[in-house]
Design a protein around this nucleic acid. Structure first.
Lengths: 239, 239
DNA sequence: ACATTTTGAATGAATGTTCAACAAATGATG
DNA sequence: CATCATTTGTTGAACATTCATTCAAAATGT
């Protein structure tokens, strides 16, 4: 019935979104708008480089070339390389945060449906694609030794985790399960991150489809009363 | 005037394993033994640097200083920086691989016990500590863009995954469960990796104990007939 | 005219690698 | 055992390269 979830599909191939033009709504403050557009353009180029080359060998020249601009431009819009990377991380964090909050809102009032939508949202093409995942992993690899990154580095923050715990607690009561909500919530969110990891690594046995199946299998096993084993909702649709 | 600068300050905190001596079984080829010891010493220093500073800023000088040796020594024992990193990754891969195989062997013939031991082995202090986990994550962040890393980068390889699938299939038959063994196995191993990720990130809400609880909660939820909700087995034993 | 943005070369710091000298162990010879 | 020759291991300085940053000049828009 509901194939609503997954069809965001915001330009996963290469994303030529930020490149178009500084036109349209900004004419009085065309400059300021142009400045924001430039920043976005450079941030997207940074994500590209992180995904393609990796954190360690992502250089300012890579970013500038990727954006089709000159070498010194990044230090004009961002003060330094570190600030560019922080801005990029912040951008991805904001995007992910907005994404799951939207999914939660769209889910309505049924807790079971809310949890399901949250889980499915994780595999939406707009955020779950090779490019973004690779960029996340690049940051994760550096987060532990960079205090500035730590707050933003885990896309699933404390607030997200608390939502999971509350939902698991609610389902526990309504379903009469007997586990610790906190433990199950941790297991669930850890599995989601682990599936992301598999997808990024590019092992052949894990695709977006199989990952979604695994997530559904977890839901069915942990909350049998709410997610019957019969209908997973992922087996027939999705191209 | 020149007092020999033999610091040998290997392994400050945890592992003074490689330090012992080039003696014993190697007298004819004492040199070769010493060579292996040096290699291990440098590999350990590399892990230290990866964990403390991160992949991007781990330099040859860091490694040499960490081992208490001179700058040029790494290029003598390893041909290049890349080969040092590959050797380090291989070392960690071999260690992890040997670890889970040993755990599997010790578990006896009962499939339920085998799976449980495999899961618990993941949180053994010998491999599940901040230092090693941080080093793993550092490699993961670079693996996608470095073909040489890819084969070794995921500690849990195809063989490990197959063991999981087979065990899940066996438990499915004996317990009369109704899910797809492959999906559940993927969910399980992904959760383990995700829990590792949380532990590395150093978020306060995830410790080795809570991670183990989450893993046990998963087992109890997925295989209720085999792992009753009552006894998790993790509350008192296992240091 | 004026402010803003962009360019591209110059600069200086950091880093991987090389290498000639040096030290230590090993083996040969008497 | 003593002495020398040879191989193996180690050092630290020198070198070349890469990269982030700076900045004066040019281009662009208002």
């Amino acid at each position: 019935m509901l194939e609503t979830v997954t069809h965001m599909k915001t330009a996963e191939a290469t994303d030529n979104e930020a490149q178009s033009a500084p036109k349209g709504d900004a004419e009085k403050r065309g400059r300021k708008a142009s400045k924001e557009v430039r920043r976005l353009q450079l941030i997207e180029a940074t994500i590209d480089s992180l995904a393609k080359r990796g954190y360690a060998v992502t250089t300012m020249a890579d970013v500038a070339d990727g954006a089709g601009l000159s070498r010194g431009i990044v230090n004009f819009h961002f003060e330094s390389k570190e600030k560019l990377l922080i801005a990029t991380l912040q951008h991805m964090y904001d995007e992910y945060s907005a994404h799951w909050r939207t999914a939660l809102q769209k889910a309505g009032d049924d807790p079971a449906r809310q949890l399901q939508q949250l889980v499915w949202a994780d595999f939406d093409r707009s955020i779950c694609n090779k490019r973004k995942l690779a960029a996340w992993l690049a940051f994760w690899g550096e987060a532990k030794s960079r205090p500035t990154y730590q707050a933003l580095s885990s896309s699933r923050d404390a607030c997200y985790q608390q939502v999971f715990i509350d939902l698991c607690a609610t389902l526990k009561e309504s379903g009469g399960y007997s586990y610790d909500p906190q433990a199950i919530a941790l297991a669930l969110s850890a599995m989601l991150e682990g599936l992301w990891l598999r997808l990024m690594m590019g092992t052949e046995d894990t695709t977006r489809e199989t990952a979604l199946q695994a997530a559904n299998a977890f839901l069915a096993a942990a909350f049998p009363k709410h997610y019957g084993q019969r209908e997973t909702g992922a087996s027939k649709n999705r191209g």
